[in-house]
Design a protein around this nucleic acid. Structure first.
Length: 472
RNA sequence: GGCGCUAUCGUCUAGAGGCCUAGGACACAGCCCUCUCAAGGCUGGUACACGGGUUCGACUCCCGUUAGCGCUACCA
């Protein structure tokens, strides 16, 4: 048996949708698992909507996810001649025929059927022109489309995820394969390309299930064995509807901007509709490849849960060494407009345990670097009210003790000693000493342990912030 | 309307006739840890859409119902 050849074939008509990304991931995983070849083909035949910029976004998105292609990108538009040649071969072989009906006439037929409440289907016997008129149009050199003569028999296949799926050819139209301008229609182009690229496994979204019998019929007419088909389920939004840009981030690039790590995104996407069979959630890439199989792909559509993605990202974040976060955090800080002159490593180290995304890390660092970003939150106000006079008193005492600490001793272990001693010396609860400092330094009630926070912000800046926070 | 696909906790899923009084994860609640939060540990609630078969036995097989989705273009 020769190595499988799979392909991902997006249309460059927009951003890289997470559903498309997952389809690409499954293809890639399958190729890597089986030692096969992953082909990237850009289906840019819709000239109206396809752009180079969109193509680039798709390429960037795949690269970001670590999905690498072995061949391509091929452009479907460049293969137009072959598509036409294949369609014309079908015509010559009697598997297709010319249809001289104009699109206006076709529309009229459709409208008529609709008025009668009957479903419209193109049937050659009923729709074709009378022989004389047909001959006249042909002789006059009028434009025509080429329709595929759908065989009136059962068309079935064993889908790798759904099992056997069967259609009756009689339920299918004689669909157009060549437009009147001579260009091929989607189903024709896909089959022509998949044959030319010797694709053995077509792994794609299950919205293509109903295209499959048409394509199989085309393979058979063309004298080629159809590939294995694997139709993977759709990805839905939290509302159970199709994931749309309006409701949630639907593009891979959005998650990149949100500070999601590619490894986390890949892991999350892989588990949306596929499962290795056990209880694991965090699955390293090598293991993912080793365990991937088409049989374990879910038949049912899956809801994309951004909360779980964030959780997973947090898991990856905690495993990631600080050095690897330097660049991503730097980029996010630049996007936030924070100028960074100092080593970010200790700052990242201080906040990353409490962060689920790179963006969240950057936001916290921004506050530690730039006092103007401090915002008193509701929890802080509540706590201040609850502490009453003690807020100002404890802050003042803390300021005195901390000011006595010189720069050389300004590190977490020493500062912790100072603060614990302070609390003990006048019988205050440790929290009543710590929390006011935390509020003074960040505006909030949540952060890394206060001694570490003081270190992250630095001695002089910390003292300034504490002094500034003392009421009165 | 026609044809097709699907149906386990709120969500992602495990489950290939007895291992299931249905397991894990996210989320949620409580407890522990603790200056706060996160992480971690422990505990808890919540699911086999419905109805018929088949079988000694059905979450698992078959049929029907219902619901959701897809396609039904000279779009891809």
């Amino acid at each position: 048996m020769t190595a499988p050849r799979v392909r991902f074939a997006p249309s460059p008509t927009g951003y890289l949708h997470v559903g498309g990304a997952r389809t690409a991931l499954f293809n890639w995983l399958y190729a890597r698992r089986t030692g096969g070849v992953f082909v990237l083909r850009i289906e840019d035949t819709d000239k109206e909507r396809s752009t180079d910029a969109h193509t680039q976004v798709i390429l960037d998105g795949l690269s970001w996810l670590g999905i690498t292609w072995d061949e391509g990108p091929y452009f479907q538009g460049a293969c137009a001649d072959r598509h036409r040649t294949d369609a014309e071969w079908l015509l010559a072989a009697g598997h297709a025929y010319k249809d001289f009906l104009t699109s206006d006439e076709l529309d009229a037929e459709r409208a008529k059927a609709k008025a009668l409440g009957a479903p419209f289907r193109y049937e050659r016997a009923k729709c074709d022109l009378p022989a004389a008129e047909r001959a006249r149009r042909e002789a006059a050199g009028l434009p025509y489309t080429v329709r595929f003569a759908m065989p009136q028999e059962e068309i079935a296949w064993d889908d790798a995820v759904h099992g056997r799926i069967s259609w009756q050819g009689s339920d299918l139209d004689d669909f157009i394969i060549l437009r009147s301008d001579g260009s091929a229609i989607y189903n024709m182009a896909v089959v022509s390309d998949d044959i030319a690229m010797r694709i053995t496994h077509v792994i794609r979204g299950d919205d293509h299930i109903s295209n499959t019998p048409k394509q199989i019929a085309l393979y058979q007419a063309l004298g080629h064995e159809p590939p294995v088909f694997a139709h993977v389920p759709m990805i839905l939004g939290t509302d159970g509807k199709k994931l749309s840009k309006r409701r949630a981030a639907a593009a891979v690039g959005d998650y990149q901007d949100l500070g999601i790590l590619p490894a986390a995104m890949r892991n999350f996407l892989a588990l949306l509709g596929w499962s290795p069979g056990g209880n694991e959630e965090i699955i390293p890439q090598t293991e993912m490849i080793a365990r991937f199989s088409l049989e374990h792909i879910q038949k049912k559509a899956a809801v994309f849960d951004p909360i779980k993605l964030e959780w997973m990202n947090g898991q990856y974040l905690s495993l990631l060494p600080v050095v690897e976060l330097l660049d991503p955090v730097q980029r996010q800080l630049e996007m936030l407009g924070v100028s960074t002159g100092r080593d970010l490593a200790p700052l990242i180290d201080a906040v990353k345990a409490r962060s689920r995304t790179v963006t969240h890390i950057a936001e916290q660092i921004a506050v530690r670097l730039d006092a103007t970003r401090i915002v008193r939150d509701a929890k802080a106000e509540q706590l201040i009210a609850k502490l009453g006079d003690r807020f100002a008193v404890n802050l003042k005492l803390a300021h005195e003790s901390l000011a006595a600490c010189d720069a050389v001793n300004w590190h977490a272990a020493f500062l912790e000693g100072i603060l614990k001693q302070l609390a003990e010396s006048f019988g205050a609860k440790l929290g009543d000493v710590m929390q006011p400092i935390r509020i003074a330094l960040t505006g909030g009630t949540v952060s890394e342990p206060v001694p570490e926070l003081l270190t992250a912000v630095g001695r002089d800046e910390s003292l300034t912030r504490i002094a500034g926070a003392i009421p009165g």
